[in-house]
Design a protein around this nucleic acid. Sequence first.
DNA 1: TGAGCTGTTGTTAACGCTAACAATCGAGCA
DNA 2: TGCTCGATTGTTAGCGTTAACAACAGCTCA
Lengths: 344, 344
Amino acid sequence: MLPDGAPRALALSDVAVHAGVSHQTVSRVVNGHPNVAPATRERVQRAITELGYRPNAAARALVTGSTRSFGLVVSHINQYGPAQTLLGLEKAARAAGYSLGVAILDDDSEAAMREAVDRFVAQSVDAVVALSTYGQAVEALRRFEAPVPLIAVQVGRDESRPTVWVAQEVGAELATRHLLELGHRTVHHVTGPPDSLEARGRVIGWRRALEDAGAPVPEPLHGDWWPSSGHAAGRALAARVRAGQEDVTAVFVANDQMALGLLSALADEGLSVPGDISVVGFDDVPECGYFSPPLTTVRQDFAELGRRGVELVLSRLRGEPLESQPVLPQLIVRRSTGPARRTV
Amino acid sequence: MLPDGAPRALALSDVAVHAGVSHQTVSRVVNGHPNVAPATRERVQRAITELGYRPNAAARALVTGSTRSFGLVVSHINQYGPAQTLLGLEKAARAAGYSLGVAILDDDSEAAMREAVDRFVAQSVDAVVALSTYGQAVEALRRFEAPVPLIAVQVGRDESRPTVWVAQEVGAELATRHLLELGHRTVHHVTGPPDSLEARGRVIGWRRALEDAGAPVPEPLHGDWWPSSGHAAGRALAARVRAGQEDVTAVFVANDQMALGLLSALADEGLSVPGDISVVGFDDVPECGYFSPPLTTVRQDFAELGRRGVELVLSRLRGEPLESQPVLPQLIVRRSTGPARRTV
DNA sequence: TGAGCTGTTGTTAACGCTAACAATCGAGCA
DNA sequence: TGCTCGATTGTTAGCGTTAACAACAGCTCA
């Protein structure tokens, strides 16, 4: 590493002088071109390591038009899923020799999305990846024409844009069917925000599982991913139970955080889980196993999702339109679900 | 936005031709230089918006040596604190006209840190921010000499490097004193990983509060931030209670996730919180209020931390060595703490 | 022996921008 | 009237790299 306040970073020409060759030969060695004599290559290599030379990314980007970097647009990075996916994305990108820029949307508006994509384009990123965005932002994505590939991760299937995603409906069906198989007559549902495509997918899967089983489809309760909204839903459900509504014995909650809020509300209301009501969440956050009771939930493999996202980007850059399959979620059974009470 | 597959992005010279001026004049307008006639400025502005011109960041970086971007090195972005801080950092950076690159360390080794910093340097970032890193990685940071400012966020006070941080000891003292004031004879502690400076700070504050009050300092239990380690600590503590150790009536756990695991273990062991044991956590994650019972904890203002991080970077870049004060944490009392049992 | 390869190296010209300097014009003033 | 000065604009060079082409050696094969 250079001493602090070094006058100027090393350039190709410095290495060239040191090795006694032209700067172009150094460039060839750096980029692994063929047609460099082994002896020369070795001499240049030595000069590079001796001087500690690293190529200047800006100069490269200027001439090649590529920065070997992706821009990641994300709106809810403080939530478990997106954060976990970022981990997978960065690792896969780095392995492929790309670095990652991050833009966080202040809100889910089209303007915010456009601004973010625009800035990435000016930075000459090679591709832009939109992660778990929703609302108008993702609608906007559909219509954008950018001079770089635009990839969507975890925003549901999309005909108009290359996408990777976890099959939300499948997860929701898994959860719902699990509860039905335990003998519950129907399954209630606490949704995520209505403009989230993930939330919508879970509603679809839940409804489908009920319909396939010929079970009644109750009116869903609405949440916003946060524990407080789950708590509110839990109180609403408890009120229904107290009002004598007999079919409230099973709930599928659209994420684990809301499920936690719901568990807490049920406990406050004196209802036992799974004795009175069975609960299933979604995500399998690391805390899940320590809720009271430990939560049955649907696990999404976010790391895999990130990996596939990068795979999709790379195949786009190579010009091979990869047809991607959804990542399949998995049911994790813990102690928050149990057989239905015998109806009195 | 350009149509997909556009032959070439616009350059200064295109705008210059369109506006009937030299490229330098366009450059002056773009960069807001004085000494451009109002009429000319307006004409150029119109040309810019009409053509949809955006300056090429790589070319700028090449000539100015600055990319107007920061590199963020982070190791545990999937945890609440770092993710939340990232949010604050990105927002503040964007407001100041900087963009953010992210590198995630695979492990906390010196090699990983060096590699990450090195890559950022090659990308000509204006500064590198290390966020919540620990172990050998942060040790390495101390010794690095890079041609750009190196800033540490949330890695504890450091004489050798500019730093912003939350005063961990103060938070730990707050938590411990709260328990002592409730009449507990002493307070047990579940630590975070030993190489985390945050975890160390919390141990120091906890010990100081006990010593100041003349209370005995029990041997701490060790955790790793994750719920499972908190669960193990909870079982160990319960065993002590069953063995007749009378002073086990209060625990300060170094983060909320471990506190959740601990609560779960105590419940399994038939101990009531706060009836038998009072518990305090650290972080104030959004789920906290819905644990059973809702968790008393110490809130850290991560968004503020991010903002101050950027402030510190900017003042460094201007060459004014800003003396930064720690961000102060705050005690949030919920229902997991209560008065000590009367000793039998 | 010489034409035609092939492999290796060097030279030159971009890429799009900013900095430094040069040129021009009109106003102000002795 | 002629000179200086400031405001505005244009011209030129260079940032560090890669691409395209040129040059040259040594070899093969007729």
